[in-house]
């Protein structure tokens, strides 16, 4: 008895080819956009990081790795990195942690008005960061801001240098604003994860005597593990890329106290005209974001 042919039937090849062509055609607009607005600028940034040039100058001088060596010895670069790390850690705790608590309350703790609270908490997510920054600048203003008035009314001392003028407080204020704006997004992600866990799991666990913390540890946490990983990675990447909120609210001040990689790169490029150095810092940021993105894909695949 003849065996059936092991190779694919010849008649399917044109169909596959046509499928590949149409897939390519459908992906082309996105690929072109990614190429023009992400890939090419990224390549130019990498090339530019090995040159010394200003934005208004036509002369590019090759300097090898000097811009990277400069970054290593630049205390402001390290200050910006450490501020980014502070924002990343703080944001994971306040946004993912806060989002998880809010999601748990909305999933289990509130019987009425869940949609209302969800909408209220999510609302800041849809407001632009610039608008959020301006609103908070007014709230935190030491002369006319309501926060000072409330704190004084409670008989508590207000910071003498202002919420955004005191180097020891201003970074915390940025964390607060970022948490206020983004906690709703994390809450929604985690809430979706919580609601996707079948109720039968809890019922079965309950029969086996696993309730409360045990149920949370063995059912809830594994059930939302992927969502938590995703939420954490989104927050970490966002924390490294943060720019608009800092730029508008403090401009990196007072006296560089809230400088982050994004604002410092901008300052070097557009205020000081050090485009090569700014490119080198942008490449550092790019590599960091790319690594974290890769980690996100890897972890979600594993999950």
């Amino acid at each position: 008895m003849p065996f059936p042919p092991t190779s694919k039937p010849a008649g399917r090849r044109p169909a596959m080819k046509a499928g590949a062509v149409s897939a390519t055609a459908m992906m082309a607009p996105a690929l072109i956009l990614v190429g023009v607005f992400i890939l090419i600028p990224a390549i130019v940034a990498v090339i530019g990081s090995f040159f010394d040039f200003s934005m208004t100058s036509a002369n590019w001088t090759y300097v090898g790795g000097a811009n990277y060596r400069r970054a290593v010895t630049d205390p402001l670069f390290w200050l910006a990195i450490s501020n980014n790390v502070f924002i990343v850690v703080g944001s994971v705790i306040s946004q993912v942690g806060g989002g998880a608590i809010l999601a748990a309350i909305l999933d289990r703790g509130i019987r009425r008005g869940g949609v209302f609270y969800r909408t209220i908490i999510f609302m800041p997510v849809v407001i632009s960061s610039i608008a959020v920054a301006f609103v908070w600048m007014l709230i935190l203003d030491p002369n006319v801001g309501p926060l000072n008035a409330v704190v004084k009314a409670l008989g508590l001392p207000t910071p003498k240098l202002g919420w955004l003028g005191d180097p020891s407080i201003s970074l915390w204020m940025l964390l607060l604003i970022a948490a206020w704006q983004n906690v709703g997004f994390q809450m929604m992600l985690i809430l979706a994860g919580l609601q996707a866990i079948p109720k039968e799991h809890y019922e079965a666990a309950s029969l086996d005597g696993a309730r409360g913390l045990k149920a949370f540890w063995y059912i809830t946490l594994p059930g939302i593990r992927n969502v938590l990983v995703l939420a954490t990675l989104i927050t970490v990447i966002g924390g490294f890329k943060v720019f608009d909120l800092v730029f508008v609210t403090t401009g990196g001040g007072p006296a560089n106290a809230t400088q982050v990689l994004g604002t410092y790169t901008y300052t070097q490029a557009f205020s000081f005209g050090n485009m090569g150095y700014a490119n080198a810092m942008a490449v550092v940021l790019l590599v960091t974001a790319a690594l974290l993105g890769w980690l996100q894909v890897r972890l979600s695949r594993r999950g």
Binding site: P142, N143, P254
Partner: peptide, 16 residues
């Protein structure tokens, strides 16, 4: 000056 000059917008100072 005001207590927190580095936290005060120039527009607020002008309006005062």
């Amino acid at each position: 000056f005001e207590d927190a000059p580095n936290a005060t917008e120039y527009a607020i100072a002008d309006s005062m």
